[in-house]
Amino acid sequence: MENEHERMEKLLKNELTREADKIIKEVEADESLKDIALPEELDTGLKTKIEQYEAEKAAYEMLSDKDKEAIRIGREIQIQRAKTNNDTP
């Protein structure tokens, strides 16, 4: 059974996907954007980052639910530590 966190995560992913699809369609339909090209260095860097992200996402998906939960808790602890450190003068 899904917990509240998992349901919220799915809802957010679905909403982001819908928004991304909408933006992609708008950009593809705009004829004035057809001839725009990225500089090669920027294009290569972007492709590298995308490939890295996809590899990390695939690795994350292979983790057990326990490991995913441990990562989530670790992130929450990092956020709390950062907040605590920012509050300290």
Rank of each mutant, 00 (worst) to 15 (best):
E31K: 14
I71N: 00
D65E: 10
I77P: 05
Q78A: 12
D35P: 00
I73H: 04
I36V: 12
K47Q: 10
S64C: 09
E2C: 03
D65I: 04
E76K: 13
A20S: 03
K68I: 05
E56G: 08
K10G: 09
L38I: 03
V27L: 07
A29L: 02
T84D: 15
Q52N: 13
R7W: 00
I73F: 13
I50A: 11
N3D: 15
L42G: 01
K57A: 10
L63I: 08
E41P: 08
E15S: 12
A59L: 06
L12R: 07
R81G: 05
T48Y: 04
E31A: 13
V27M: 00
E76M: 14
K57R: 11
M1K: 11
I79D: 03
L38Y: 05
K22C: 03
T88Q: 15
A59C: 05
E76Q: 15
K66E: 15
I23N: 01
A70L: 06
Q52P: 02
L38N: 04
K34P: 01
L63H: 10
I24Q: 06
E41Y: 01
G45D: 04
L63A: 08
H5S: 12
E76D: 13
I50G: 01
K66F: 12
S32F: 02
E54M: 07
E9R: 09
I36F: 00
K34A: 01
M62P: 02
T44E: 11
K57V: 12
E6G: 07
L12A: 07
E69C: 03
E51G: 10
A55P: 00
D87N: 13
K47G: 05
E19I: 09
A82T: 09
E19W: 06
A37G: 00
I24R: 11
R75A: 07
E31Y: 04
E15K: 14
K47Y: 07
L38R: 01
Y60L: 09
N86T: 11
A55F: 05
S32H: 06
R18D: 13
S64E: 11
K13W: 10
E41K: 05
P39L: 06
E41H: 08
K10I: 15
E40N: 01
Y60R: 02
M62Y: 01
K57Y: 10
I36S: 00
E19L: 11
E61T: 03
E4D: 14
K13H: 09
V27R: 03
M8L: 13
S32V: 03
L33R: 00
D30G: 02
I77W: 14
A20L: 11
K13F: 10
I23P: 00
K68M: 13
